[in-house]
């Protein structure tokens, strides 16, 4: 399959960060921001304070998943997959593609715990683990569509969602894939929201 590793093949970012942000505000982009990305303050595993939209999402291609450090359900498999995804994407991660893992147990997952988790898994630059005020994390869990309609399953953190949201914020392209799919498939999925000029034509 030719498309499989196109992101690493192309390996270039056509937009410098912030370039599109200065264009005329786009009402649909604004609507997506308003609905899904409350600009709450989060803490990174490196101890930095960041704003969800302004610092993490705006102008970027992003991948967002949910986890917690002591999760022994889907998290280890997804984290292992994402480690491979980060390797496959190469130096675009941290340049125009950003990976985020949001802790669903913010009380336990302090920045220090998340840092240990990241180090243990060999996480590189451009992939950020996030924690925050429990209220904000719960808000984000709902906003990002990680809730379960069944209240029992919803209350059970071990049943938390294993999807990865991927999207291109300025292009307003958003979709999701399963965090337990093959890393090459996750990379291919993210390629579908790559900048238009990077889109590889088949053949």
């Amino acid at each position: 399959m030719k498309r499989r590793s196109l992101l690493t093949v192309l390996g270039m970012s056509p937009f410098s960060a912030g370039m599109m942000a200065r264009e005329v505000p786009d009402p649909q982009r604004e609507a997506i921001r308003a609905r899904y990305f409350p600009d709450v303050v989060l803490h990174t595993h490196e101890g930095k304070k960041v704003r969800l939209y302004r610092d993490l999402i705006q102008d970027k291609i992003v991948m967002i998943n949910f986890m917690y450090a002591h999760c022994d359900g889907v998290c280890p498999g997804i984290t292992a997959n994402l480690v491979k995804v980060q390797r496959l994407l190469g130096d675009r991660v941290g340049r125009d593609i950003f990976m985020y893992s949001l802790s669903l147990k913010p009380e336990q997952d302090t920045p220090k715990v998340l840092k240990e988790y990241a180090q243990m898994h060999g996480v590189r630059r451009g992939w950020t683990f996030l924690t925050g005020h429990p209220k904000d994390v719960e808000l984000l869990r709902r906003k990002l569509g990680a809730r379960n309609l069944d209240p029992v399953l919803d209350a059970d953190t071990s049943q938390h969602t294993g999807i990865i949201r991927y999207g291109n914020e300025p292009m307003r392209w958003w979709a999701a894939c399963a965090g337990l799919s093959r890393p090459s498939w996750i990379v291919e999925s993210v390629s579908w929201v790559d900048w238009p000029q990077n889109r590889v034509k088949p053949g």
Partner: peptide, 17 residues
């Protein structure tokens, strides 16, 4: 449905598989 994901025989869509 498992962990918020839809699956068939415990697996997910992959065009290449």
């Amino acid at each position: 449905r498992g962990n918020g994901m839809w699956q068939i025989n415990g697996q997910f869509m992959d065009c290449n598989t």
